[in-house]
Each structure stands twice: as C-alpha cells, then as structure tokens.
C-alpha cells in the first residue's frame, strides 16, 4: 500500500509537470512523452490482471481465460501468462524473462524455450505473435516520434484532444516495423491510446495490422481501455480481442511468480 502511495505521488507530480502545472506546455506536449504514457497505460511497475482472449479466425472461435503477471521494476521485465481454461489449453503457460520466452505444456510437463524461427508465430493461435510478448519494445525509447495531426473531439461527452503521431525506429532499434502510426487522446491529466497501425514497409499504403483500444473503464485505480483488438490486414474478418476483466497495478508481485516452478503450477 505504501508503494502504491509513492507511485501515486510520482504520478501526480508528473501530471503536474506535463498537465495541470504547466498550461502552456499542456497545449503542446512532447509527442514522445505522450507516446510513452499511452504505451504504458496498461502497465504499472507491476501488473496483475485477469483477462479473456477471443480469437476469431476463418476456421475457429476460441476463448481463453488468462491470468497475467508482470513486473517492470527490475532491469529485466518479466511476465507470466497462464491459461486457466478451456480444458484443451488449461495449464499452458508462457514465461517471459527479459528476451527469453518459455512455453509450458502440462500434458507432457515440458518446458520449451522458444527459438528464433518460432518467435514470429502467433501466440497460442492468436493474432498476437510470440514476438509481441517477448519484445521489450519501449515505443518512446526505440522510436522517434513526430506529430502528424492533432484535433479536438468528444469522448463520452467530454472534450478531448486527439493526437496522431508517427513513430519511426531509431537506427539501432531491434524492431520489425518500418513505422507505426499511433493515435491517442489526452483529457485532463490522462493519456489514452486509441489505435496503433503497424506498417511493414515505407511504401505500404495500408497497415500490416491494426491494434485498437476501446471500452474505457476505471480499473485498478486508472482510466484504461479494457478491450484491445488486433486485426491482421492479410486475413480480413479475423481478429483477436484481449479483454481486461480485472487489473491491479503496482502491487508487490513476488519474484517467485516468474520462475519455472510458477510456470508449471
């Protein structure tokens, strides 16, 4: 609890700096700081969540119930995802420690460390890739941000400012995308992402895939989008939804949560 209070203080302080405290800057916030805050909207120092994942493809519809544990406090970010149901996948888990991704299959009690050639595959049949999970991408660090457009609109009856920001990777960034167009809005002291378009090539007219953020709710003490939808361009009509049922930020998640034993449990 003490920790969460410290976080709150830090949060308010940054809000003071970027938002309330400096009206002049609030009109023209740095695109990179907007991206940083939007990118981290569902990430705390630690994150614990209960989620559902709906996968819709030509051949199947599937819903996973998932628990998610993340810890960004240390030097290496760590995360554990467990599939709670249905039966076909119950007990499967994915453990990420830094750049290393391990999969657990309870039917054989085997742990597989993913090799390079498999990182591009979809995670558990979804439209999110293993790469999406393993990449410790920090949009603000790995990309240059450039404001494309800003406009005013209403969200839930309240006036907000939308920003469209183009992200181009820094030369040494280990990223798969040529550029990303990030759309977000700011209201009072919060920054909410609405859409990310991922482009494979500079010349592409349409994005390779689109991630959208919807269903704003107060959850875990923040206003957050609770439905993330990934739509691949090469399979029209297919999508994967990630729905947050429960989330808690900045609680003290024990380090033991990110071990092979926890993955097996």
């Amino acid at each position: 609890m003490k920790f969460s209070r410290v976080t709150f203080l830090a949060f308010s302080l940054s809000a003071l700096v970027f938002g309330v405290g400096s009206p002049a800057r609030a009109a023209t916030p740095l695109p990179s700081s907007l991206v940083q805050r939007a990118d981290g909207v569902l990430r705390g120092k630690t994150t614990a969540a209960l989620l559902e994942m709906h996968i819709h493809t030509k051949s199947q519809d599937r819903t996973y119930t998932l628990s998610y544990w993340g810890d960004d406090r240390g030097g290496t970010s760590r995360a554990l995802i467990k599939i709670l149901g249905p039966a076909r996948f119950r007990g499967h888990g994915t453990l990420k420690v830094g750049g290393r991704l391990s999969l657990y299959d309870p039917s054989t009690d085997g742990i597989t460390v993913l090799s390079g050639s498999m990182l591009g595959d979809g995670w558990m049949g979804s439209h999110f890739t293993n790469d999406d999970l393993v990449k410790e991408t920090d949009l603000a660090r790995d990309y240059h941000s450039r404001e494309l457009k800003t406009w005013a609109a209403n969200v839930d009856g309240k006036p907000v400012t939308f920003h469209r920001i183009q992200l181009e990777p820094t030369p040494q960034a280990p990223v798969a995308w040529n550029h990303i167009v990030f759309e977000l809005f700011t209201r009072d002291d919060v920054v909410i992402p609405t859409r990310e378009d991922f482009y494979r090539r500079a010349t592409d007219a349409a994005p390779d895939r689109v991630l959208s953020f919807e269903d704003l709710k107060q959850m875990g003490g923040r206003l957050v989008p609770t439905r993330l939808t990934m739509r691949p361009a090469n399979a029209p009509g297919e999508y994967t939804e990630l729905i947050y049922k429960e989330v808690r930020f900045d609680a003290d998640v024990p380090a033991s949560k990110f071990s092979d034993q926890a993955l097996r449990r």
Partner: peptide, 19 residues
Amino acid sequence: ARLTQEQAKLAEAEIAALD
C-alpha cells in the same frame, strides 16, 4: 466451464491477496 471459473476465482483471489 466450471473448472475455468474456479481457476479464474483462484487467480482473482491471488491478485486481491497481493501485498
């Protein structure tokens, strides 16, 4: 479905019990 629900409850409890 029941098994999944039970698992979700357990996870919820675990999240609530953090700290």
